[in-house]
Design a protein around this nucleic acid. Sequence first.
DNA 1: TTGTAGGCGTTATCAT
DNA 2: ATGATAACGCCTACAA
Lengths: 357, 357
Amino acid sequence: MKRKVTLKQIAKELDVSISTVSRALSNSKEIGEETRQKIQAFAKFYNYRPNNIALSLKNKKTKTIGILIPEIVHHFFSTVIRGIEIVANKRGYNVIIGLSNESFSKEVINMEMLANGSIDGFILSISKETLLQQDYHHFKETISQGIPIVMFDRVINEVDCDKVIVDDYKGSINAVKKLIATGCKNIALITTMDYVSVGKLRTQGYLKALEDHRINPKASLILKLDDSLALEEHLDILEREIEQFFKNNDKIDGIFAVNELYAVTAMKVARKLDFRIPEDIQVIGFTDGVLSKHARPSLTTVSQHGQKMGEQAANLLIDRLELDDEEDDVYVDENEIDMDFKTVVIETELIERESTK
Amino acid sequence: MKRKVTLKQIAKELDVSISTVSRALSNSKEIGEETRQKIQAFAKFYNYRPNNIALSLKNKKTKTIGILIPEIVHHFFSTVIRGIEIVANKRGYNVIIGLSNESFSKEVINMEMLANGSIDGFILSISKETLLQQDYHHFKETISQGIPIVMFDRVINEVDCDKVIVDDYKGSINAVKKLIATGCKNIALITTMDYVSVGKLRTQGYLKALEDHRINPKASLILKLDDSLALEEHLDILEREIEQFFKNNDKIDGIFAVNELYAVTAMKVARKLDFRIPEDIQVIGFTDGVLSKHARPSLTTVSQHGQKMGEQAANLLIDRLELDDEEDDVYVDENEIDMDFKTVVIETELIERESTK
DNA sequence: TTGTAGGCGTTATCAT
DNA sequence: ATGATAACGCCTACAA
């Protein structure tokens, strides 16, 4: 077992000082040609690599990004991670992942754990429980400690930081307008409880689209579901809820669902009740995942471009990190808070498939 | 902006030595009651937390696990990550992720990047390109540097390390036997090229099941597909290939596919050709993902229990890491290589749904 | 009971 | 051209 070589060992072996080795390896020209050759050859032979941890301690930066998300077994989130990873890697950063599992306390613990030196900045999407409790102290504290945060998708106004979102409002409007344009008269909305900001915005988009076309929204056409129904164990309950909803509203000819699962389940129920899709009922879902592509019929969706969101988030964060670097040198007025946080909006895209005309 | 406090700052502020502060905070009883109180109160007020990086450097362990996988936007892999994360977190470890994107060089680079002190051990699944080139030097070097590796799912015999696999062979046998038991006479296999070990094993299981029932395998009933067809861009080609396959074999009454996508696509094609499922053709897929549950009809699958695999892998790795800790103290014969690597086999489970009788 | 000093691996500054 | 030293933040053996 050949442990990693250190500068010290090389120095001892070659009977020079540590600093000489360090300089030789960084190609400093104040080192004699022959010593440099010798040291570099030796280092190469023993496959010397500087120790990241030591560098991190010295430079006070780890070159790693902390990602904090509610759930990883989820097409959208993993897409975002992929985007982050691509950019991070290209720009010389690593990526460390924490899962909140939609729990406030796990989010806080994870954050504190990583904020103790392990990472230079966070990219995160807020857990549902946090959103519900509206307790954002951990974000604020982290930021006040000088650790920048970039939020994506599930963001909040209460915290000043860079954000990457999708235009949920506009995306929903477009989706519903598409349904209206293709002849739907009674468009149902299947959504979640309001505290998840994106759910709320999508609901508002739905209402706005109706309003723009002078269609009166009917409460009976809106189904608000508990999130827990999205869990695997409760798929059958979800199905029953939706079936009941259909039976109470026999004139439904269009459905806009705030996520893929609701949309696909609605299609399943509709077919079971002998509606034809898209002839009798058209369906559009928000979020473009695996299900949508492979559903029968395939589902028209509003794509969020998760990977692009991830890439943008990573670029925003790294830009800020490297900006901070420079500012460390020059004089910066402590009172002059940087108010110049960006919110990048990624355009949604309506991907038309078989579930609409 | 209140930066993180360090022991040094606290010491200076309270006019005691750094070691006194350190000891007071670790509740050492050789510190006077009052000084301890004072220091602890001060530390609490300023929300002192030891710096992870400094600890890592000192202890020569980072308490973080490196995960190296080919792809993250993939139900199985993200399930495994979830399992790893749960155990890692519970046992006080963080998780850092690298994606090889099925590329050999990215795998090597990622590995070297993380092996320079960032992590204590790896949990990984080998990229296809690596499997194809059969170049495993990076794994061996990492291990010889004293960094343990646990491989899962896509593993190889050539490297000595702990492994977590699913019994692909047995799982496939069971699946095919199920098809035989429910009356299938002409069972087709849809598989990948042989260099992906799991694909090979699943193919062998298929053959074995036939053999056990004295059924002669027919080459015409085996469709070997290029992996690239699993990419989104090529879904239509995949569909066409499978359709052609069906047309060349009009007696197929059962299908065993080595992954979910092939299985679902086969069902799609079968229905298009007016076969009824499961009456005319029964279908089973390996890997239980989102598609299987929501397909129409829902797909019978061989579940790999990804989360359990992740949990096992994490436990194996951490066990070894903490074992190494102890051994650092006692005398260990350098020549006495630890041959006692475990290979944990996770039992597969046949999840019966609507695509079989 | 408290302080001093050394070391983890690096790099940068200041001597020689 | 090379070496000694300090510093990053922490812990701990040894001194006092």
